[in-house]
Amino acid sequence: MSNKYIITLYTLPALLLLLVLIYVPIALSGYYGLMDWTGIGQMQFIGLENYANLMKDEKFWASAGHSFLLGIFSVLSLLLYLAVSLVLVSKIKGSDFFRKIYLIPMLLSSVAIAQLWLKIFDPSNGMLNKLLEMFGVENTPVWLADPNTALYAIFVPIVWQYAGFYILIYYAALKNVPEEIIEAARIDGATPLQIALKIKLPMISAVFKVTIMLSLVGSLKYFDLIYVMTGGGPNGASEVMASYMYKEAFELNNFGYASAVGFGLLVICLGMTWLTSRLTKSNDDVQY
């Protein structure tokens, strides 16, 4: 009996924090979405008008498209991270050293990463174009300044930024695969490739599913590098949902509409979370 009170008591602080910091603001932003509000002065109730506008807002859907594109890229890059972890875990020389190297971007703040890559992408003095020029490329691309390349150019540092995080997760998961199973397979004559594909990967499939969801949702609400590196430009070519929301709220003083955008973003994220969990669902976690 008293057990229940104690459980309540112990969970109460976390529950209150969650409520005050997360759920109440969500409800509030849904509510602000019903308002015409500049952020200053009086709110005016306008019903679902903001949400109706959101539905037919081409700029929002264009930025949603960019966010989804980023999501696809991030999920695909998970395969790359996984491949790297598989190599690292196979006790090659210096794997410890490499693991630490891959972790470094994770320790840098996004703004520092943005500044670093801004220098790399600089069309005249940047490292990348200097390198291209060395190989004899004329008319080197202008990367962030060209609407056709800006978005993809930013994907590169984003993929680079999160490499350490996912490699660390995969590495830890792969380390947890029991040595005996691998040993047994080896005695049965399995090649290293077979061990990797048929034993290690199935054993960490649960972890893989979680990372898919993390990277997808993380991409959909991604903001920092894009904001610092292009500000969503040129002319909206690299705008994503979160940067669009920020712009509406803090640059165009349109808090009501921005709240509606934020709420739309939330709905999309929830929808995608549900969808991925459905798609990756399998009843039997692999056990050997």
């Binding site: 997360i22 759920y23 603001p25 969801m213 949702v217 959909l220 929301m245 920020y246 921005a258």
Partner: peptide, 22 residues
């Protein structure tokens, strides 16, 4: 559990918008 976690992750940003004002 993981659903709740990623949901929370996705909400954090939305919360940030509102909290920023306060």
């Amino acid at each position: 559990k993981k659903k709740a976690f990623s949901a929370v992750a996705s909400l954090a940003l939305v919360g940030g918008l509102v909290l920023g004002g306060c």
